[in-house]
Write a protein that binds this DNA or RNA. Structure first.
Length: 341
DNA sequence: GAGTATGATTCCCC
DNA sequence: GGGGAATCATACTC
């Protein structure tokens, strides 16, 4: 006799118990010893229960639960269930860790979205800023925007994750309670409950994976936008270029502004210190490569500087004494053919 | 659309 | 880390 047949015969034996048998252990023994009853009869008896009053049904249930053979029969049924159903599905239960989830987790960790907070993802922002050639301490608009948006993504991610975890926990408890309740009337082994919990966790973990995927996509989009925005070239305005050129040509003998000078120029031009450094780097190289081409520009700025200096001097003379010598501003530079002062 | 200008990036050296 | 040189990518001009 195979397991399923044994189970059916077990159920048939239990189903065939009359109210008189339940109250009479000898009768039960006789009923259990009887040949298999027809399935139709059992179903008929089950259907007949629906015609009974609630009190009668409760009484029958109570009588069954109190029957001295019930624990033994219950354990046999559990065993059969475990052998027939759980052994088949059990193989699929112990899945190895999903590499996709691992990749997503690693990425979220690296970007500062998951894991311990590191200043709102400042590490990733700094890395992105560094990758873009800017100093993390520039305090540029793009950097602070990136950090703010990353912090927003992080907040949403954690809030959603918390919701999922709470829902998962609540649902698991609910199902476990239901199963425990049902286990009084039908064979439910602890292993089966564990299996059910695992199924629920798998379902919720697939939802979590979707959340992680969406978060990763959001971070990628943010990052690419951030880097693109920094990479996108915009010409400096005319005034900024004039300020930089004035400094460059008036310091042509040593066109290397100090950090303080760079900061000052950056402030004047409303650009970052890195941009000032880039500008001077480019200017030095391009000037050196083609001095002839820049000579006209150099002379232009020399004249401009001289005029400005004269203007400042005149104002100072008027304010002080007509005899005061010209001491303000840059001297009008006299350029050698190689462009040096 | 081609050529040029120019800001940004990358690699290398010191 | 700062600077030189090469290069990229985009804006601008014709």
């Amino acid at each position: 006799m195979d397991d399923q047949t044994r189970m059916m015969s077990g159920l048939a034996g239990l189903g065939g118990l009359s109210q008189a048998d339940v109250g009479d252990p000898d009768g039960v023994r006789k009923s259990l010893g009887q040949p298999q009853q027809d399935i139709g009869d059992i179903l008929q008896q089950i259907m007949a229960i629906t015609d009974e009053s609630l009190d009668e049904a409760q009484a029958r249930k109570h009588a069954l639960n109190c029957h001295r053979m019930k624990p033994a029969l219950f354990s046999v049924l559990c065993e059969i269930k475990e052998k027939t159903v759980l052994s088949i599905r059990g193989v699929q239960e112990e899945d190895p860790p999903d590499p996709q989830i691992m990749r997503l987790d690693n990425m979220l960790l690296a970007e500062g979205v998951s894991g311990p907070e590191k200043g709102g993802g400042s590490a990733a922002a700094a890395a992105a800023a560094a990758a873009a050639g800017g100093s993390p301490n520039d305090g540029s608009i793009e950097h602070s925007d990136y950090r703010a948006k990353l912090a927003q993504i992080r907040q949403i991610y954690h809030s959603e994750l918390e919701k999922y975890e709470q829902a998962c926990s609540e649902f698991t408890n609910h199902v476990m309670n239901l199963l425990r309740e049902q286990s009084r009337t039908r064979p439910i082994s602890p292993k089966e409950i564990e299996r059910m919990v695992a199924i629920i966790h798998r379902k919720f973990s697939s939802i979590q994976m979707q959340l992680k995927q969406s978060t990763c996509e959001a971070v990628m989009i943010l990052r690419s936008r951030f880097l693109d925005a920094r990479r996108k070239r915009r010409n400096f305005n005319k005034q900024a270029t004039e300020v930089l050129n004035e400094y460059f040509y008036s310091h042509l003998s040593n066109p290397y502004p100090s950090e303080e000078a760079k900061e000052e120029l950056a402030k004047k031009c409303a650009i970052t210190v890195s941009q000032v450094s880039n500008w001077f780097g480019n200017k030095r190289i391009r000037y050196k490569k083609n001095i002839g081409k820049f000579q006209e520009e150099a002379n232009l700025y020399a004249v401009k500087t001289a005029v400005d200096a004269a203007s400042v001097s005149a104002q100072a003379s008027q304010a002080n004494s007509p005899a005061t010598p010209n001491s303000g501003g840059y001297p009008a530079p006299c350029y050698t053919p190689d462009g040096r002062l």
